[in-house]
């Protein structure tokens, strides 16, 4: 589980980028704003992952799965 809540642009994507070096089939990442949600979605899709997310209060739990 990666926690990118509260991080300003572009740190959430950098956190994911570093984690993706290990080429897992699935990642779970927490973010707390729409910009980070969009940025993570874009980066994940460009790198061959499908994105699904659930929202509770201000937090988004994003599940990325390799296509």
């Amino acid at each position: 589980m990666l926690d990118a809540r509260g991080r300003s642009c572009p740190e959430p994507v950098i956190i994911l980028k570093k984690a993706m070096i290990s080429q897992e089939n699935s990642y779970t990442i927490l973010v707390d704003n729409k910009t980070a949600l969009e940025n993570i979605t874009r980066y994940a899709e460009h790198n061959g992952y499908q994105v699904a997310f659930t929202q509770s209060n201000d937090d988004f739990t994003m599940i990325l799965t390799k296509k």
């Binding site: 572009p10 994507v13 950098i14 980028k17 874009r42 980066y43 460009h46």
Partner: peptide, 10 residues
Amino acid sequence: RDVILFREWK
């Protein structure tokens, strides 16, 4: 920055 970091052009 995003072009350099992620090759992201938006």
